[in-house]
């Protein structure tokens, strides 16, 4: 960003001289334009994070019954962090979303990539209509999507279960072992479309003459896709992977809604749900803040890992 600002400045300088001087107006202009972003960024990201860190290092101490003005907030160092890290439920929740991510992200990206490649090839008819159909679930809010799928998962009201039963299967989408994948199915349905669009638009930027060269070299559609298209859109795939990983760790809406149709999603099913139950329901903002910071660190670490992996890949090329 600083490079961009510098080049703008160097371009404006001669013009200013021509006009015969001029105040600091143009010099301050970038800051004025940046101000709304910076203010909101500070107000809604930096300050809350700072507050969360402060909260996570303190604990509210009460005494007796806790009635009257008997409470005080004391500095307790990392004790909230140790408590979070030794909480079996918190770690289980973290493990659960990681397991979920390991399966859901590749499946969803493979689907999105395949669809993008199909739409990019000449083979598909009614392209606009089909593209819209794949994208449309993204326009359905996550909570509504989870509610809709919740209906389809309940044996007595679900046409899907009816059909499967008539075929001799007896699926239980809400059993303890399957409900995580039923939730994954909802998110795959919801977000495949938007990731498909991102990859598809990356495909549009690939110069067509490369395909022509490949065709002259004797590469078929499949080979072109595998050897040319996928490597060319790798940055887009990595970008979508990065956002998907972040989304995975923050899983909240879908399992929260699924809780209303099955008890096999516990109140502390994902880290974000545990933070919700600790703070909003349990009133322990300090422990909840420590958990939120830990979750943020894990997300940060994974994001760095994904981008490092992508850079290394780029370096080889």
């Amino acid at each position: 960003m600083s490079a961009a600002t510098a080049s703008t400045a160097s371009r404006t300088r001669p013009r200013r001289r021509l006009r015969g001087g001029g105040g600091g107006g143009e010099r301050t202009a970038p800051y004025v334009f940046l101000a709304p972003f910076v203010l909101l960024f500070i107000g809604f990201l930096v300050v809350p994070i700072g507050l969360a860190i402060w909260n996570s290092l303190h604990t509210v101490r009460r005494s007796g019954l806790g009635f009257g003005s008997a409470s005080e907030t004391v500095f307790t160092g990392l004790s909230n962090y140790t408590e979070a890290l030794t909480d079996a439920e918190f770690l289980a929740g973290l493990g659960r979303v990681l397991l979920y991510g390991v399966v859901q992200v590749p499946v969803m990206l493979a689907l999105a990539l395949t669809l993008a490649l199909l739409f990019d090839s000449a083979a598909v008819r009614f392209k606009r209509f089909l593209q819209l159909s794949v994208f449309l679930p993204y326009a359905v809010p996550a909570v509504v999507a989870a509610l809709l799928w919740g209906f389809l998962y309940q044996p007595q009201v679900s046409p899907v279960v009816d059909v499967l039963r008539s075929l001799g299967a007896d699926p239980d989408f809400l059993a303890p072992g399957t409900v995580l994948w039923s939730i994954a199915n909802v998110t795959v349905w919801s977000v495949t479309g938007v990731n498909m669009i991102i990859i598809f638009s990356a495909l549009q930027t690939v110069p067509r003459d490369i395909y022509e060269a490949a065709r002259i070299d004797g590469a078929g559609e499949f080979r072109t896709a595998l050897r040319i298209k996928i490597p060319m859109v790798a940055p887009a795939i990595i970008l979508t992977a990065l956002f998907s990983v972040i989304g995975t760790l923050q899983l909240f809406n879908e399992p929260m809604v699924m809780r209303s149709v099955t008890s096999n999603v516990s109140s502390e099913y994902t880290p974000n749900m545990m933070i919700f139950s600790t703070t909003t329901q349990g009133g322990n903002i300090n422990l909840g803040s420590a958990m939120a910071i830990l979750l943020g660190l894990v997300t940060f670490a994974l994001s760095v890992a994904v981008s490092v992996a992508s850079n290394r890949r780029g370096g080889k090329r």
């Binding site: 809604f44 996550a142 998110t187 972040i246 989304g247 923050q250």
Partner: peptide
Amino acid sequence: MARLTSATTRAGHPSRRYAGVTAVVAA
């Protein structure tokens, strides 16, 4: 806080934009 984070639950980057809108509306 839970509500704000829930806005970014969905994967895919347009949710970022929604988070921004949420912030403005909240302000």
